[in-house]
Design a protein around this nucleic acid. Sequence first.
DNA 1: AAACCCGGCAACCGCCCTGCG
DNA 2: TCGCAGGGCGGTTGCCGGGTT
Length: 293
Amino acid sequence: MGRQPCCDKIGLKRGPWTIEEDHKLMNFILNNGIHCWRTVPKLAGLLRCGKSCRLRWINYLRPDLKRGAFTEMEENQIIELHARLGNRWSKIAAHFPGRTDNEIKNHWNTRIKKRLKLLGLDPVTHKRIEQTEKTEQVHDQKNKTSAESSSSQVQEIKSLEIKSNDHGDSVKKEIPAGTDDQKTQGDHHVELSTMDDTTAFLNNYETLCGNMEVGSWLNSQETNTSTNNSCSTSSFSWEDQSSYNPSISMGESPPNNFQEEDNSLQQWIDNVDSFLSWDCFNQLEDNLFLLEN
DNA sequence: AAACCCGGCAACCGCCCTGCG
DNA sequence: TCGCAGGGCGGTTGCCGGGTT
């Protein structure tokens, strides 16, 4: 039979959201806050599932979303974080205010992954591809000879990692050791016997990336994303708004927060209106309406 | 100009986790 | 402690627009 759907999907709309639906959802959340996603579509007059509303809000309508292309710095940071955290996109997204996990995940899958491959780096292990193969061999051997001491293999892994340092000057950064994130690295990552090894690996990784000049390479491969960013996509950063309260979340009531500040709600709506270009859409809707009649 | 291909991204699916009664 | 409901999250799908043939 399978799992029960999260809500009664009969008669529910799916697919791309319309401007009208966006308006309804945004107005509802602004006026009422979010108490229970399941009730949101009903109360907001939407024929959508609660989950769909939640996703739409989080990935598109949320006022603090940063729009536009990823900068070179952001990309490098994503790569760095992915090396530490694996595919835990929400954790990675937490380091990028205004970016969503979905956005980062898509960006990773569509661009960064390919670039790492082009650079000869395994996007999963973040090691050079030939090293990954060797490491896998080490793992295979380890499984076969589990009774033996693993020290020599760890040594081999270490030596492989250290090789990545042999590319010239190293660019060292301070990396906090012993964080939870490091302790919970994904299984697919290189086995590290100690926290020192983790730090060494990260340092080596960073050194590798630095020496291969990922940033400049990316820059040369692509007509400057930052310039494109500034002209192709309007960017709305809620951080710019002094009245913004980032704690819009379950159980809280954003309107109160907004109302406490002079004109903040109106400012927000104005900003959202501008970045969604609703005037244009409204005009289009009007035109369509006239055509239909 | 049309057909086809491909990449990017929004949205969906379904499992997992957490909080509550 | 257990079961359930709801939200969170990662993986996947499918549409759309731009590029190529």
